[in-house]
């Protein structure tokens, strides 16, 4: 008959429950090492095998490379269109040299769609930011130049 009184008791008890609100963005949540955020790219590791571009379900990766003095293929351009990228992780799965990986960066909101086309420089910088070699917003020269 008075089942709702039990419910009132339950909600009253919850007053003392630990608050579970996350303090994002003041406290960034820890997503763990497998988190699939925005890509990071290591140009020096890339062997231009084109597997990532082929496996991509949305064809959001385009790349080009050329032969250099050492007779090996080197990457020239590497663009990811984050307008259509679904962060499915298939590209990092097929990459034989782990040149393309996922970082834990995930905030992609911009005011302009053009900003969502990320080129090789941005992805390379993201790799160094995420590995702690470069601070966010810092340029090559300021950090003393890694390459």
């Amino acid at each position: 008959m008075f089942g709702f009184l039990k419910g009132l008791k339950v909600t009253f008890k919850q007053l003392a429950h630990k608050k579970i609100t996350l303090q994002y963005p003041d406290v960034m949540p820890d997503f763990g090492e497998r988190f699939r955020g925005v890509h990071k790219f290591y140009p020096e590791k890339c062997i231009v095998c084109n597997q990532c571009a082929r496996v991509c379900p949305t064809s959001c990766i385009s790349l080009s490379g050329s032969k250099r003095e050492d007779k090996k293929l080197h990457i020239d351009t590497y663009d990811i269109n984050f307008e259509i990228c679904i962060l499915c992780d298939l590209c990092t799965e097929v990459c034989p040299t782990e040149a393309i990986q996922m970082s834990d960066k995930f905030e992609l909101a911009t005011y302009n769609r053009v900003d969502l086309y990320k080129n090789i420089y941005w992805l390379d910088e993201n790799a160094r930011v995420s590995d702690g070699l470069l601070k966010k917003g810092e340029t090559e020269e300021q950090s003393g130049g890694v390459k």
Binding site: L15, K18, K19, T21
Partner: peptide
């Protein structure tokens, strides 16, 4: 505040 506390929020 009260409803927040009851729902584990702040």
């Amino acid at each position: 505040k009260v409803i927040g506390w009851m729902q584990w929020r702040i």
